[in-house]
């Protein structure tokens, strides 16, 4: 079942001179894990904002085309009602806490309180998420006194606990150190294994290769490529759009250039091990 459907969507922020999204068509099936890549200002965050209804409900501006999320017409749905359907995790780890809660535990419960979930259920759901994400040791800390990585994990927990049908995760690790990045991706990995419909905007291309089933490349407000990760991320044309390829794909392309009969271009380390291992068995010259 398609849970996100964008048809001929164009959108311009009121402060922008040109359109930020141009004739975007996108269908996302339930359970898909999609990564959105592209250079800065390509329209990745705007795409997320349109799916969540922030554009145009929050930012104003003109949107043409139709946006349906979870069967709801986003343009005709109150911005608050979409809280049930779409969870959104932002880039800056420090700007996502409510600012009114004294412990991480209550911070995570805030969304459920707003949705009017019964107290007993809130306790159960928050406990479950805290244990699932391995952040029980943070539960009694003050949300303002966490490191970036901890903050981002709490932000993820605060959204996951609301059990939205769709998760938008916008560059969650761009401001984090390697340890924080690792911790956040462990959670993303878990979400993928659970089959959560997820759209991840990410620059770290090796991570994208590891997790995404499908990759969307954006440039100047348009979707310029859309397909299986293995196909998109091994295409050297990506470099023209200001996006790098995964390390292993670059290696694979280089090996092919050198005339080695590589069956397919690997995009993850595991795939590289298999492909290159096969080459060695064949005595391909390595």
């Amino acid at each position: 079942m398609a849970c996100i459907e964008l048809k001929q969507v164009s959108y311009r922020y009121p402060t922008s001179k040109t359109a930020n999204l141009k004739e975007v068509n996108l269908t996302v099936e339930s359970g898909e894990f999609i990564a959105v890549i592209g250079r800065n200002e390509a329209g990745k965050t705007t795409l997320c904002n349109v799916i969540r209804g922030f554009a145009p409900h929050f930012y104003q501006g003109k949107l043409s085309g139709s946006v349906h999320v979870n069967g709801k017409d986003v343009l005709r749905t109150e911005i608050g009602d979409l809280s049930w359907d779409v969870g959104y995790v932002f880039q800056n780890p420090f700007n996502q806490n409510s600012g009114v809660k004294a412990t991480v535990y209550e911070e995570i419960s805030y969304g459920l309180e707003n949705l009017g979930i019964p107290r007993r259920e809130i306790f159960d759901r928050v406990d479950e998420v805290i244990n699932l994400l391995g952040i029980a040791y943070l539960a009694d800390k003050h949300p303002m006194k966490l490191s970036g990585g901890q903050c981002q994990r709490v932000a993820l927990a605060s959204i996951i606990v609301m059990e939205p049908a769709i998760l938008l995760i916008d560059e969650p690790t761009s401001q984090l150190d390697p340890k924080g990045t690792e911790d956040v991706f462990k959670i993303i990995d878990m979400l993928k294994k659970k089959g959560k419909t997820t759209i991840l905007v990410e620059h770290k291309i090796d991570r994208v290769a590891e997790y995404a089933d499908r990759v969307i490349l954006m440039d100047e407000g348009r979707i310029v490529r859309d397909g299986p990760a293995a196909q998109i991320l091994s295409d050297p044309a990506l470099l023209e759009y200001g996006v790098t390829l995964p390390q292993t794909a670059l290696l694979g392309l280089r090996l092919r250039e050198e005339g080695l009969p590589l069956e397919r271009i690997p995009i993850t380390i595991d795939q590289a091990a298999v492909s290159i291992g096969a080459l060695r068995k064949e005595g391909g010259g390595i």
Binding site: S83, N97, N114
Partner: peptide, 9 residues
């Protein structure tokens, strides 16, 4: 971020 957490729900 608040909106995502159902502030206006």
């Amino acid at each position: 971020a608040l909106e995502t957490r159902g502030f206006n729900y």
